[in-house]
Amino acid sequence: MGIEQKAGDLGAVTMRLEQAVNWARTYAMWPMLFGLACCAIEMMAGQAAKHDMSRFGMELMRATPRQSDLMIISGRVTRKMAPVLRLLYDQMPDPKWVVSMGDCASCGGIFNNYAIVQGVDEIMPVDVYVAGCPPRPEALVHGILTLHEKVRGEKIKTWA
């Protein structure tokens, strides 16, 4: 700041590049259209009329990983699904974030058995965990806002 006072009213705003990029990323996050189990229904409810996630710049669900930058793991991840999920994650372009929605995705939940991966962080790095079985849509919205907070604090060194 400071240049505004010297240059007068030019109709321009100045900010650090870091801030500008982070701000842009926060409000144009495209989640991947992709559901696994019960939490996917609550995610759909979060998108629908009452909870309306598009208030936070999330209305554009992309069906392909190559156009999305946020992955919401909504539901339990099985051992059969895990390689597919990792493949999808690898196909997403940087920068990318992962929200692990629900107890099953975060830690295995009530299913502590042979078929379920005990926490999706075993196959991909997770940014935000949302607790609940299934989490309410409000909880998902809170998770998304927490992610926004995190993105706003990212440093230019890490992505440039």
């Binding site: 696994l36 099985t78 059969k80 699904m81 597919v84 299913f111 058995n113």
Partner: peptide, 21 residues
């Protein structure tokens, strides 16, 4: 089978009322 959760096996390891969840 991409969502095979092993519920039938897991229920065998819980008491009747707890398996209801």
């Amino acid at each position: 089978g991409f969502l095979h959760t092993g519920i039938e096996k897991n229920m065998e390891a819980k008491s009747y009322e707890k398996a209801a969840v």
